[in-house]
Nucleic acid binder design. Structure first.
Lengths: 281, 281
DNA sequence: TTGTTCTATTTATCATGATAAATAGGTTGG
DNA sequence: CCAACCTATTTATCATGATAAATAGAACAA
């Protein structure tokens, strides 16, 4: 009877999956079982066809599926084919925004969460900030600490984006990957917000920019002194003040699909493993 | 020179996109521009082929891409083809876990965030809880408020899962979609945790279960009294105590890809629009 | 009315093969 | 040693067509 119950439960809503999806799943299982790491290669298309006894089109759809999920990257040429990759943050954020596209997320909604997370994020980052990080933080501040009007309207938007970078640098230094991710998601959403709602009077922007520079400076100073609690406090203040400015630059997180082409590969402030040689291949 | 800089910046790492990806993007643009809502249908495959002047295989890959992203559902038959759907939460969570698969998220990492969000979530939910919600909360508690040992080991795991449901019910009642999503993500991660690390002695489980029942009862009571601050306080306590138990049930969030077949369509505690008839097809 | 059967539509998968494009690695010329 | 070129490999896309499976809606029967 335990079995019956289990069977009944399992029977609910078992939609016949498409073969391509099953193959994609098999490949995932293959990745897990063979413990394939980023950089490892999948068998060639032809071999996969034989392995799963499916036709070319099916295996291609399966690979496409994995590619869209960001799990593999497919290349042409010798030793080409599917290669396991670490799912890129940008891809993940994009998929997430597809979801949020259908929700109705307001600026307040985002800031409610940000206010809760960001102080803890900053506090946790403080002990791990390197000299390099401080320089990056200061560079970010410097970028915003000068009149932007001379360069034209576009520059203002860039300064606001740079404000967000400040927080990304802090995020990168926090050892908690989940907290880090959560804040990076928020930062990305705010970026989108800036990008598509820049119909704000320049005066507003400037006032906001000045306030940001001031508090960012204070935060950096406290961080240099490794004063965790001070940083936390300042960030609370920052997160309380910021939404007031942003709200005046009103608007909802635009219900809008983020196109692949719009994902700028931002320069990550900090790699996962800081090595001497920047290994980019 | 501004132009030069911009061009240089844009030139960095512009990878030639595959045609299929471009088509997928075009369809996304089509969805945005035509303001297609969930339920609306895309043109048929053949028409899309003509529309973008690509072959069958290319259009299929594009549709596959959108399907994997959860943006469309493709069906056979008359008036079949691609239909825009609201990206399912489960799909989103799965894609997210692909990302986290490569990170090394510990229980502490999750609880650090949970501790920050859950009290606010609960507090925000209180004014919106309906009688139906209270009943669901109490049912959830009742489910855990009896010895599980009689039914065998599997039942214990189910009770822990039910504990998480309690929080899902609260989440569903919070009007902030972003906060809601964040907590639902956490809940799902905890579920995964329970599912794959249930090598914990039964005594531990029971002790944890009892503690949960107690505090869940208190929270429900305070919520019934619409005492927002009390709820928040209690949840802080709950979030502080819980990780102690869970940590003893040690383990990392298993680095493990979640297979499509493992996505149980959980019964959502509350639909977006609560109807009289439970529409299950 | 109600439930069943039929049918036309549309995707799913298979099969096969051809040309184009990307690329790793070897070869050649300086 | 370095740069430019060549080549074999492998995916990307196109083309075409056939069979299978799912399904909405019409036709039909009780």
């Amino acid at each position: 009877m335990t079995i019956d119950r289990a069977k009944a439960g399992a029977a609910i809503e078992i939609k016949q999956q498409k073969r391509g999806d099953l193959v994609a799943e098999e490949i995932k299982r293959l990745i897990t079982e063979k413990d394939l790491k980023p950089g490892d290669r999948l068998p060639r298309e032809v071999e996969l066809q034989q392995l799963f006894s499916v036709s070319k089109s099916t295996i291609r759809e399966a690979l496409k599926s994995l590619e869209v999920q960001g799990l593999i990257k497919v290349t042409t040429g010798p030793s080409g084919g599917g290669m396991v990759v670490e799912v890129p943050l940008d891809r993940t954020l994009q998929l997430l925004q597809n979801y949020l596209f259908f929700k109705d997320v307001s600026i307040d909604d985002i800031y409610t969460v940000r206010k809760l997370l960001e102080p803890e994020l900053a506090a946790g980052a403080v002990p791990h900030l390197t000299e390099q990080d401080f320089e990056a933080l200061e560079a970010s501040i410097a970028c915003c600490d000068r009149p932007a009007s001379s360069h034209g309207g576009q520059d203002i938007v860039r300064q606001r984006q740079e404000d967000v970078n400040f927080h990304d640098i802090l995020a990168a230094a926090n050892p908690n990957p989940f907290l880090r991710f959560s804040c990076e998601l928020i930062n990305e959403m705010i970026r989108q917000l800036i990008e598509f709602r820049n119909d704000t009077p320049q005066v507003e922007h400037e006032r906001f920019g000045l306030a940001n520079v001031k508090i960012h400076k204070a935060i950096t100073k406290a961080a240099r002194e490794r004063d965790v609690e001070k940083v936390r406090e300042l960030m609370v203040v920052h997160m309380t003040e910021a939404p007031r400015y942003v709200k005046r630059m009103k608007g909802k997180l635009r219900g809008r699909l983020i196109l692949d082409s719009e994902i700028r590969r931002r320069v990550r402030a900090r790699s996962v493993a800081p090595t001497d040689e920047p290994d980019q291949e």
